[in-house]
């Protein structure tokens, strides 16, 4: 049994559909620590000690957010800036996160095809996510392929939410295949890399 930390960040939950659906669906999975970052820190006064302890207490950190301007919402950046301290997450003696996994679960407004050399976003989605990937690498963490819902404004999100509970369950039950997830480009609800014998 791995300990899973699910951090959810959406500043405009009144207009969120898919992300909110994921958050609500995640509540039904037992043994997962869920944190609504904007509810805990509506005034951005992040408690570094509490957040570092949270990281220490878990093996897999799932960061869920909508992609805003090719990056995360501001509070997630603030959370990373403050929590991933020198001497804790990286640098001299900073190996507290070594061996853990950092995984992103995100939604994009644009369709899959936009995220390509020929598409109007001009880059692959993974290119935009390299800051997160390198953050994980610098902290000696694994960075499995992100779990993505493209075209989130049009999608109804039900499949994506169902897939998310399956993902969390597999992470918790050690039936998630990190090797395959590391090799994959992106994960969707129907391409989850589960180990043999695990029920999807």
């Amino acid at each position: 049994m791995a300990k899973v930390l699910h951090i959810f960040a959406h500043p405009g939950q009144g207009t969120s559909r898919v992300n909110l659906a994921l958050w609500k669906a995640a509540q039904s999975v037992d043994g997962i620590t869920g944190v609504d970052l904007y509810a805990v820190y509506p005034r951005y006064d992040i408690d570094i000690d509490v957040e570092q302890q949270r990281l220490l207490d878990h093996d897999v950190i799932v960061l869920q957010f909508p992609l805003f301007w090719y990056s995360c919402p501001a509070l997630v950046k603030e959370w990373i800036d403050l929590t991933f301290e020198h001497g804790f997450a990286y640098g001299q003696d900073g190996d507290c996160l070594k061996g853990k996994h950092l995984m992103l679960a995100l939604t994009t407004g644009g369709p899959h095809g936009a995220y390509s050399q020929q598409g109007y976003q001009h880059f692959e989605l993974r290119t935009f996510l390299t800051p997160f990937e390198q953050t994980a690498r610098l902290c000696q963490m694994g960075f499995p392929a992100p779990y993505v819902q493209f075209d989130a404004l049009a999608a109804d999100g039900a499949d994506h939410a169902r897939g998310f509970t399956a993902l969390l369950t597999a992470l918790r039950d050690d039936t998630f295949d990190f090797r395959r997830a590391g090799e994959a480009e992106l994960l969707t609800h129907d391409t989850l890399p589960l180990k043999e014998g695990a029920r999807p």
């Binding site: 959406h10 500043p11 405009g12 207009t15 805003f68 936009a114 109007y120 404004l153 049009a154």
Partner: peptide
Amino acid sequence: SERGWTPPTPEDVKAVARRLE
């Protein structure tokens, strides 16, 4: 407060995509 983080409608998104592609 609603000004912030209000997503465009799916139609808006399609229009943008059409113009850019």
